[in-house]
Design a protein around this nucleic acid. Structure first.
Lengths: 147, 147
DNA sequence: AGACTGAGTTCGGAATCCGAACTCAGTAGT
DNA sequence: ACTACTGAGTTCGGATTCCGAACTCAGTCT
């Protein structure tokens, strides 16, 4: 059995940035087109000081970009960067999980394939095999899951 | 523009369970085969009282199962349930994101397609079109993202 | 002049987090 | 029988983070 002691892996690092109660929600709000401080604030119900700090951090890590959109009174808005948009697969995975496993509470918008309206599934894609596959065929993720 | 006021959507609910600094890491440890209290504890470096509370919560929400594995001194371990395993796509998405966008720090194990060893990609799958597609073709996720 | 807007800051108190030390039942060694 | 050890937690006090409510500050609108 190999030893994976505490060398601060990449996901650990990532989750230190994005793994709190608000960050993913902020990304989602960003995807929904929200850009301004007050809008984030009352869409999510996040406390203002926390929002300030969270946005600053997400900007620092390149997930949002703070952009001036007006001069007269200087005003800034927050937009997702490419890296921020790239979090959408993770978000989709979470949305799908909640649809499937969180019985309680209102169901969200069901995600569909835009061209045809079919509910989507999520898969991994192997470029060289030209095929899709599920989590159990991913090496490096699990180890010794039986029952 | 529609109004998505505060009706506590499914992801919000989900992130209240899983969206803290430790829960996803615990799921990942579970996937790596870790099951016992002390092992979680020193694999992740999480404080004991926090681990206790977190595991209790994850059990309550059906992500882990607390199972007795010994009687003499009664001992319990924690195993991922089906719902817990179903979080792996989200985890994979995060791992892939960190590989791609978190330059700093040691890179993790690269995830590969087990049969052939090719680095995997993640995609959405439309059963009716029999094709894969990316986030931009998902309706219900974004709205008005331009640049 | 007075009210309003947007993007924050500044409070004080409440909830969480942390590490270190302790508990408790049983087992192993001498 | 005495001591040490194991695993799964609890109990502490102190540090950090969170929260809502109220405030600021520049500029605009009426």
């Amino acid at each position: 059995m190999e030893n994976t002691r505490h060398t601060e892996t990449a996901i650990e690092e990532t989750l230190r940035v994005v793994g709190d109660r608000w960050s993913i929600l902020l990304v989602r709000a960003g995807l929904r087109g929200i850009r301004r401080f007050d809008d984030f604030c009352d869409d999510l119900g996040i406390a203002r000081p926390v929002l300030t700090e969270r946005l600053r951090r997400l900007v620092k890590f390149g997930i949002f970009e703070r952009r001036k959109y007006q001069d007269k009174p200087v005003r800034y808005e927050y937009r997702l960067t490419e890296a921020g948009l790239a979090l959408s697969p993770a978000l989709v995975a979470l949305v799908r999980w909640s649809e499937e496993y969180s019985e309680e509470l209102s169901s969200d918008v069901t995600l569909v394939h835009a061209p045809c309206g079919t509910e989507l599934e999520q898969a991994f894609w192997c470029r060289s095999c030209q095929s899709t596959f599920g989590p159990s065929a991913v090496k490096g993720l699990t180890s010794g899951i039986d029952s």
